[in-house]
Amino acid sequence: MAKEEKNKFRVQYGEAVGTVAAQSLGEPGTQMILRSFHYAGVESTISTSGLPRIVELVDAKKKPTTPITYIYLDKGIAKSFDKADEMVRKISEVTMNSVVRRVDENFAKGKIRLILSSQEVEAARITTKGVASKISKDFGFETKADGRTIEISVGTRDPKKVRAERVRIMNSIISGIEGAGKVMIRQDEQTKEFYLIASGSDIESIIDIPGVDSTRIITNDVFAVYRLFGVEAARNVIADELAKTLNEQKIGVNRRHLALIADAMTARGNIKGVGRHGLSGEKGSVLARAAYEETVKHLVHAAVYGEIDHMNGVTENVLVGKQVPVGTGTVKLAIKKEDLSKIGKKK
């Protein structure tokens, strides 16, 4: 009995799952608030949320506006704050730009003087000497560290070259991993386990660091996941991120609709957005493509290459006025009653 009831709710042959999925995501989308209210300290404060995030996912944007990576640590060190803190120092990306308070160039002597900000230096857990030796190592310049001041001899008096070196130095990375962004420590309330949140998505580099649990690392950057783990994983990220974003605003959309959208986006082995440059632009039917944006482009292409429309989709059949191959339109009479009697006679 219960099984029969359950079967009623299963998708049936010919059901327009795509249209229903689109409607199920589209309708709540109209109710979403563009700028939602954030609670202090919650990670949603730093990430894009709401409609802009949905658009970002569905359009398959190459880089998310606010990438976030959740880095879990190996079981052995996960419960220790000190170990986690050490990991932060290893991973957290510190650029010269972020710690330098002031830059002076002395073109006459060919020297650059950096004054570091005490606050930033302490926050990044580095020392002036460490920075100075890093510069010497990376660029091969003679450096002198004194208090919070570093003096660099560039070895040339040409103002153009001095300026070029200044830019190179300022853009260099002092510690951590390029693309990892700022890293913060969080604690799981249930397991009391410490984990890290990075505002970058270079999981390819982060995953190899000793101490990082490579089985649990996850990011909201769909393409980073696609590059490292493949489409199947990327599909899951798309669906999860959609569900998470909708959940934040207490909008209940069935997971299956979101999964279908993610499936459609990744069905060809790569990630395609749903718009004109993605799914809609790659429909098989000329008429269906022409009916949605850039009409002339598709008609001209069809004329030049002699395209054939096989009339298998919904839009093109609506256009010409045929029965749509969906729902009740999918079934056809296999054999007429009169013909059935003919078969009987033959035997």
Binding site: A16, Q23, G321, Q323, G327, T328, G329
Partner: peptide, 19 residues
Amino acid sequence: ERDTLIGYGASLLLKERLL
């Protein structure tokens, strides 16, 4: 409105309305 009929699978009703 067309999409609602497609979503419901009422193919023949859709044809009646639109054609």
